[in-house]
């Protein structure tokens, strides 16, 4: 009897150990144009990276603003205007810094400025300046927005696409087709 019991335990352990779990695909990186396309967000799109952050109160919250192009239909651009709304009940704006893409990986110093309405709207204005290149092309990191978390809760930070703009060197506008917000959870 003891032999049979041990035998059953061994079988259960073997099945548990050797069970073939099937995983679901979870490709949802905002920088991934395919994942955005699957969500109905067409390129070029303005997104935040990472898409979700969970932090404690009084911690620094850093969010990257990123422009995502489809690799087969990239367009060169030089300037951008981004209008961002954030939950001021949770976050307090600290500072905004230019991203690696707009600085050509820290090789140039772009024209980069921003305005804050004192409430929850941030306007970022940037223009690519370089002695060797006229413009930049493709997916890239435009700005780092840094907040302080001031209270607990969860909310989203998002673009106001009506007031966002991307221009070529000849001032022609490139239509921004999509946007993705980011979720902030303060515990």
């Amino acid at each position: 009897m003891k032999f049979i019991y041990n035998y059953k335990v061994l079988i259960v352990l073997l099945f548990t150990f050797l069970s073939c779990k099937l995983y679901k695909k979870d490709f949802d990186n905002p920088v991934d144009y395919i994942a955005n396309d699957d969500l109905g967000v067409d390129a070029p799109a303005l997104v935040f990276y990472p898409k979700t952050q969970t932090l404690n109160q009084n911690e620094v919250v850093k969010i990257e603003s990123v422009i995502v192009f489809h690799p087969d239909s990239t367009e060169s651009f030089v300037g951008m205007h981004l209008q961002i709304q954030f939950p001021n009940t949770l976050l307090e704006l600290d500072t905004i810094k230019p991203g690696l893409f707009i600085t050509d990986t820290s090789n140039t110093t772009p024209l980069f400025t921003y305005s804050f309405d004192g409430d929850n709207v941030i306007d970022i204005y940037t223009y690519f300046l370089s002695e060797t290149k006229l413009n930049i092309e493709g997916t890239g990191h435009i700005a780092d927005i840094i907040f302080n978390s001031i209270s607990t809760g969860s909310d989203s930070i998002y673009y106001d696409l009506d007031d966002c703009q991307m221009i070529k060197i000849n001032d022609d506008e490139i239509q921004i087709m999509g946007k993705r917000g980011a979720e902030i959870i303060i515990q």
Partner: peptide, 11 residues
């Protein structure tokens, strides 16, 4: 894939 914001590494 989730830990990078580099489009090439993402791909």
């Amino acid at each position: 894939y989730h830990q990078t914001d580099d489009e090439k590494l993402v791909a």
